[in-house]
Design a protein around this nucleic acid. Structure first.
Lengths: 212, 212, 212, 212
DNA sequence: AATGAATGAGCTTTCATTCAT
DNA sequence: AATGAATGAAAGCTCATTCAT
């Protein structure tokens, strides 16, 4: 009797088309993919896509939004086990790179195709990205309250730096078709730099650069 | 005697078209700009552009190459005055953000339009970017030799992290039309995090996190 | 007892959809209106419309047919009180313009939207229009028998001229959104020209142009 | 050396495409014709059409404008030989129908295809038609000054009636593929009705209806 | 009888690039 | 070298209509 739920059917087909689009966009690129390619991959007619998505751009942005929500949800779980803010930041980085590694087609779309979209880059407000990154900014503030992160750090500036560092490495990895380096090493590097870079000096410590 | 040098004339018109393209691409976007817009802005006929550039993509990539060469040249000058590797890294970051700030149209094209290009992102090998960033990797190695940068840092990984952090902030600044934050603050953040993040612990120091 | 009559129900819904279509077509235009707009306006599902009308064109043509039948019926009543053929012709003109004035939405559809239809203009035989206009031709013949209308007039030719004159004025009035002139003045003009234009010369009269 | 005149070349190709469009639209209808059909008929590439016309609608409207200018020019010549206003009105009608008869493809487009165009009917201000018909209104005024046309006639109202009568007959003739009646008879009818319908009563005459 | 989700055909227009002059 | 008129490929989206429920 489950099939009798129409909103269930609707959600299923939405999902069906979205997943097909991820596969097709990852393979042919957003611009290289025709709507009919997506329709074929999903096993529906071209027009059906427009019953579930406004247009081709909306399809791409929907992939972004839905996957970012999943990503953010998973992040919260991943951080739950961390104790200090710095430990959670480490977990954030490792989680981020693990997701890139484990979801290649999605990563391909979000790292590459999405960035090639005028709409996304210039007009769209990626609130779902901010939700995700906002967690980092909150961790920085948390760490500052705990006294383990320097007070002179602007959480938002640090957030962009942290995201930029991870994002660039993820992009190089995806573009290089994963051949040149491991994402574990990328995670180590980001963790190594940012943990020390953000950390407050040990009480009574005498790091000479701390005068800057 | 200047007009008598034909290669000089050629270089002049090449430059003329290139600068016109920067202005037009910055204003209308690469995709939104027509070749005839560039031709109009340069005061030449459409066909003339093809005497100096292979095609529209080549025009964009030429902007990238020529500006990156200038950027790299300027960077060498900027670093010359630095003493230690860490000081040079600080100068690198400050130079980078100053260039973004002082050359808005170029920054607009390199930060935004270039990234929207399939060709650039997927097919092109941006050697000129590597030349620029390679200087950072060299500085890391230098610092490791000097003993002021941790040995467990992979210079190339650090390079991507450093570039990614700066690039993301520059991109946000350009996209936000420079309203939300200052690039000086961005430079401070990057410097503050990376200098500490890369620095070797003071000899005999006892930073508890160094055990990680 | 009314609800017990199934053909009564059917006629009601037919009427319901037809009147909804008139409103929607008048507002959005035939091409601009979607079947679902009509369905919404009628409070039925899209598919239901196809239980009562063959297709979208049939809906438009049905409006034409049903309204023309009503129009023709009303015309007969309006002419009943006239005495001579010429007087009836005058009544015809005044009735026509009054109908346009009193039924704006219907006029909008019949004057404008219908004419924009390929089907109507090129393939359809508008018998119901001929029924309506045939009355005019019959009046001309009647007037010729009575001796009040010139014998050298071809009733069918006169019919098209008469209809054309009225129709053009009605169309201008509808297109101008009724702002520029009154349909009463239009009626006066048509009556003034056609009555004199058709009238036989007074017996023994010596109108010099009668020689033509 | 005539071919060296570039504006001449341009005008030639404009004309070439326009005449091709008339043939194609007359045969397949405006909606049934694809731009590539017109391009083929003109012996140019699809894109070339857009160098001379803004879009498909503009092509249709250009046919209207250019042919109306020609029509109006010819009309002035045709009226030149007339003496009185009434005689000129007669010449107007006969000229109009002769043009329809002698330029079938153009008539097909202007009588049928043009009217099927939403753009033309609802948005466009057909100034060139008004120029043409304005001549009729001027003739009516002229006749009123001469005393041969009744003063109680509104020239603009009469103009629409006159045009409507001719236009309806021309349309029926074109739609019927010229089989059912002759345009000469149509001209006779229009002339017969309008000349008498507009004429002032002979001085001292005693037409009983003149009291209206 | 009524519903409404699914279908899929159909075509204008832009603009990078070429090449005859 | 410079011009600029001509080329022609390429695909998103709408919406009337169907038909399983």
């Amino acid at each position: 009797m489950a099939a009798a739920d129409p909103s269930r059917d609707r959600a299923d087909k939405h999902e069906l088309i979205l997943e097909a689009a991820i596969r097709v966009f990852a393979e042919k690129g957003f611009h290289g993919a025709r709507i009919s390619d997506v329709a074929d991959a999903a096993g529906v007619a071209d027009g059906t896509i427009y019953l579930y998505f406004k247009n081709k751009d909306d399809l791409l942005l929907s992939i972004f939004e839905e996957k970012m929500v999943e990503l953010t949800g998973g992040l919260r779980d991943a951080l739950a086990e961390g104790n200090t803010a710095l430990e959670k930041i480490e977990r954030f980085a490792r989680y981020h790179f693990r997701m890139v590694q484990d979801h290649r087609a999605v990563a391909e779309v979000l790292q590459i195709e999405l960035r090639l979209s005028n709409k996304f880059l210039k007009e769209y407000r990626p609130e779902k990205l901010w939700d995700y990154l906002g967690i980092f900014a909150a961790l920085v503030r948390e760490g500052q309250d705990e006294g383990v992160i320097r007070k002179d750090i602007d959480p938002f500036m640090a957030m962009w730096a942290f995201f930029g560092a991870m994002d660039e490495m993820a992009m190089q990895w995806v573009l290089a078709k994963h051949r040149t380096f491991s994402l574990d090493a990328a995670a180590d590097t980001v963790v190594g730099i940012f943990i020390r870079g953000l950390a407050a000096p040990p009480p009574g410590g005498s790091n000479p650069r701390e005068q800057t």
